[in-house]
Amino acid sequence: MAEVETASTQYTAANNAEPIVKYLDVHKSFGDVEVLKGINLEIKPAEKVAVIGPSGSGKTTIIRMLMTLEKPTSGKIIVDGNYLWHMEKDGKLVPANEKHLREVRGDIGMVFQHFNLFPHMTILENCMTAPIHVKKEDKQTAKQRSIEMLEKVGLGDKIDNYPSQLSGGQKQRVAMARALVMRPKVMLFDEVTSALDPELVGEVLEVIRDIAKEGEMAMVLVTHEMDFALDIADRVLFLDKGVIAEQGPPSEVIENPKNERLQNFLHRFRS
């Protein structure tokens, strides 16, 4: 590789790597209603993918299946070379059990729209619990790493506070620190700013931007912040009625959309 490493050469390099996540013809129904109608998707390591689309198009469902919060009705999801919802038994693929899910989902982390912090724990305990009990780190290491992570999201002075004592933006930054200390290979963000007061959105986006710049982690962001998507995403997916209706670099998808429904969708945002 040449010594001058531009953003675009990095992107190409990432493109040649084995995908960290693959969706193979994934369908999802709730009752009789099919909300995802055959999703095929590959996410490269370190790739930043923004998912946009109208309400009810299935954006949340796509990433919840990857976090194992929702089980696909059919199709396969592969994480870092392993089936997520299936495992091999006597040479056959059978539905995964909890033990298998635990092994594979360790690569995935998620930040929720409504934060979901643990209200009975301090900010520091919120971050430390999983490294200690899931990764079996010793307490001192976990504590130190958690403090560093909280400092990184600008909350080093709040570590002994409880979630109820924080603003929405601060809560969401804690939620990010909590997910980041687990060092996931893929981090999922589900409209993480949409429950926030407008004046608090900026601080959260700023942290996400910082994380994205660091690079090595793949990120999937469901978002309504088009400018933000344009800025940090390598690729934008437009989800419509349960299918990926258009995808590509943000410069094409957001600035030069071909799909008519995407044009309308973006038009509504611009106005």
Partner: peptide, 27 residues
């Protein structure tokens, strides 16, 4: 206990026992 508490516990990959002991029962 809010459903989001279960989901966050899953996202952090806590075991079933850990979910109950660390997150659900204390609340």
């Amino acid at each position: 206990v809010a459903p989001g508490q279960w989901e966050a516990s899953t996202a952090l990959n806590l075991s079933t026992k850990q979910k109950w002991m660390k997150v659900i029962l204390p609340q």
